[in-house]
Simulated assay, not measured.
Amino acid sequence: MRFIIWVVVNALAVGAAVALLDGIELTGDTTTDKTLTLIGVALIFGLVNAIVGPIVKLLSLPFIILTLGLLLFVINALLLLLTEWISRAFGLDFSVDGFWTAVLGSIIITIATWVLEFVLPDGD
Rank of each mutant, 00 (worst) to 15 (best):
A11M: 15
L70R: 02
L116T: 07
T27M: 13
F118K: 10
V14D: 01
A42L: 00
A112T: 04
E25A: 15
I86H: 06
T113F: 05
D22Y: 04
L21K: 10
T113L: 12
L58K: 10
I4W: 09
G91L: 04
D124A: 12
F94C: 04
I44Y: 05
V7G: 11
L78G: 09
L81H: 05
V52F: 10
P121I: 10
G28A: 09
K34I: 04
L81D: 08
T101A: 12
I5E: 05
V9H: 07
L71W: 06
T32L: 15
L70N: 02
T35Y: 06
L68N: 11
G46H: 09
L70T: 11
V7M: 12
D29L: 14
G105A: 07
G105S: 01
L72H: 02
T32E: 14
L104T: 06
L116D: 06
V9L: 11
E117I: 02
K57E: 10
F99R: 01
T101V: 14
L26C: 06
I24M: 14
S60G: 02
T101H: 09
A89M: 08
N49G: 03
G98D: 08
L38H: 06
L20H: 09
V41G: 06
L82I: 15
A11I: 13
L66N: 03
A11S: 15
K34R: 15
N10A: 13
G15A: 14
I111N: 08
D122H: 07
L92P: 07
W85T: 10
L81E: 11
T37L: 03
G23D: 02
I86Y: 04
L116E: 00
I107M: 07
I39R: 04
V56Y: 03
D22S: 13
I107P: 05
W6P: 05
L38G: 04
I24W: 04
I51E: 05
T113N: 15
M1H: 12
V8P: 04
G69P: 06
T31G: 15
V96Y: 05
L78Q: 09
L20R: 12
N10M: 09
I39F: 00
G40M: 14
L43A: 09
A112F: 10
G91D: 08
